[in-house]
């Protein structure tokens, strides 16, 4: 399962979630974000919100990934794209405006 916030993508391998006893991601979301992750049939989900609401509410706090990694089943990874970083690391010029 995955969902997008304004500038990041949260990926959850929900096959690992049934074995998770803590559901730490949901607790973290409640504490550090705005409870966009909630349990549905024992699995974290954003299906109670529309995509638009997820984007509007989400604060990109990254807490679910940390909580899952530390206290859950390492099921969550968050992609945070950084425009231009790959090019910069390869020494490809970013200036192009002038």
């Amino acid at each position: 399962m995955d969902f997008k916030e304004r500038s990041i993508k949260v990926n959850i391998d929900i096959t690992k979630c049934p074995e998770c006893n803590t559901k730490a991601c949901v607790e973290a979301c409640k504490l550090f974000d705005r409870s966009i992750l909630q349990l549905k049939d024992g699995i974290p989900s954003v299906s109670h919100l529309s995509q638009e609401e997820v984007v509007k509410r989400g604060t990109e706090c990254l807490a679910c990934e940390y909580a899952c990694w530390k206290r859950g089943r390492q099921a969550i990874t968050i992609d945070i794209p950084i425009k231009g970083l790959d090019k910069y690391l390869k020494g490809i010029p970013l200036t192009g405006g002038h």
């Binding site: 916030e5 500038s7 990041i8 604060t59 990109e60 990254l62 807490a63 945070i80």
Partner: peptide, 8 residues
Amino acid sequence: PVASKIYR
């Protein structure tokens, strides 16, 4: 700032 921005 949001955490994603600090990360970047």
